[in-house]
Design a protein around this nucleic acid. Structure first.
Lengths: 239, 239
DNA sequence: CCCCTTCCGTGCGTTAGCGTACACATCATG
DNA sequence: CATGATGTGTACGCTAACGCACGGAAGGGG
């Protein structure tokens, strides 16, 4: 079924005018991403960029002692591998699959060529990058000022926005790695949310039961990021 | 003296080929930046971009309750106002002068025109933006994992790298605002550094006495950022 | 069915940083 | 030289999160 796996499930690809899309389409390669796959390694030159369709990819900073922190998350609204068109080729952070699913990948050089033609694609990618910057900045703020409870809500909502369902396959251990906190801390915060009836989880499967409830508990960071994504990426789909 | 105030003290402008620079030069307007000046307000469309020469500008996220956090710092190596060429026009963060000095400003539209010509300027600005992204990401990590002592060292070194002297005009109160911590916390950490003979300060004037000493105490975040700036922005000055 | 791995819950003591309050210098000004 | 504003030092209780060390429960494979 061609429709089951359609590159245009990715919003950036979907926003391209027909001719530009046709130009890339033959080179888009469907890939299956499984949990934990690493798409970009720190300092390594990447061959491809990835356009997620129904997967979620985390951008992580890993430190010398092995501790890590998620600095941003990418779903169907975005692209993994911005340093290719930004010109740096590599980046000190990693990109890891947080939620299994599909993506389309494209040879880096092909993307660069199209980007350098000052095309619609260029403008889309730059606006997307600006949105990503906002997410990173707000992550910095959130790490500084807000409680783990609030940050967990933020993280759940950001993930939820990038998923087709209300279910997340994710252990508390992994969430802790993403947030850069202790596993026990996540257990405690998640326990509160469960007691409040907002979520329910069981061995790596989290169901969101009451999204408005989460939104009531989350810090302002979520709204700031969401608003900026909506503002920057609310293009009309061309025919 | 024309040389005392030369736009090419800014590294981005200095890295432009002669013809591109000549194109912009007539429109570069010298401005004097005083401590606390706001160059970019959250959500406001900006008329100009700024190329600092010997001033330092902080990019800050301000929250609803008024607390703020610095997410990145810009000196002669950079430009203030990336959202103009990134296409978003505005940004949720503020840009505030952290160290008084000079800058050259340019009408936003002129910059955009030049940027859209896929010029050297475009590539420079995009690479610079990627470096900035790294700084933001590392700020997020640092906020999560490192002690105030370490963060203060990082902040001092980042500032020092952007100053011609070893002196910083900066009260502990202001540093606290930048780092998003209590003033008393800064007093304590700075007191340690002073006792250790690394810095000395007096009513808003900080002198760095022992830079290697600071580098020995700072967390890895500083080096990560520095390395990435060096890597991405080590262009050769054209004639 | 048993064992072993994975995942989650809980309970310590410890600590960095917070909020608050106040005391004391230094400097500018009238 | 008095006054006030600004910048810095210190102290004390509080809390969120940490590090560590368990114990238990669920599920999968032999």
């Amino acid at each position: 079924m061609a429709l089951q796996h359609d590159p245009r499930q990715n919003h950036l690809l979907a926003a391209l005018p027909r001719d530009e899309y046709q130009c890339l389409a033959p080179h888009l390669e469907w890939v299956d991403l499984t949990l934990g796959d690493s798409l970009v390694e720190s300092g390594k030159v990447m061959r491809h960029v990835y356009f997620p369709t129904d997967s979620i990819v985390s951008l992580l900073c890993v430190m010398e002692d092995g501790d890590s922190t998620e600095i941003a998350v990418v779903g169907a609204e975005g692209i993994v591998g911005i340093s290719l068109f930004m010109g740096g080729e590599t980046t000190p952070s990693r990109a890891v699959v947080q939620s299994a699913g599909s993506a389309y990948r494209l040879q880096g050089q092909l993307l660069k060529d199209e980007f350098d033609r000052a095309s619609t694609l260029q403008h889309l990618l730059l606006r997307y990058t600006q949105a990503l910057i906002t997410q990173m900045a707000q992550t910095a703020v959130c790490n500084r000022h807000h409680s783990l409870d609030q940050q967990l809500c933020r993280w759940l909502l950001l993930s939820l926005d990038r998923l087709p369902t209300n279910e997340l396959m994710m252990t508390q251990e992994l969430i802790a790695n993403m947030l850069g906190v202790r596993r026990e801390g996540v257990t405690e915060s998640a326990g509160k949310l469960q007691k409040a009836g907002l979520i329910s989880y069981h061995r790596g499967r989290i169901s969101i039961l009451d999204r408005p409830g989460l939104e009531a508990r989350v810090c302002e960071c979520y709204a700031v990021v969401k608003k900026e994504y909506d503002r920057l990426l609310s293009y009309h789909r061309p025919g």
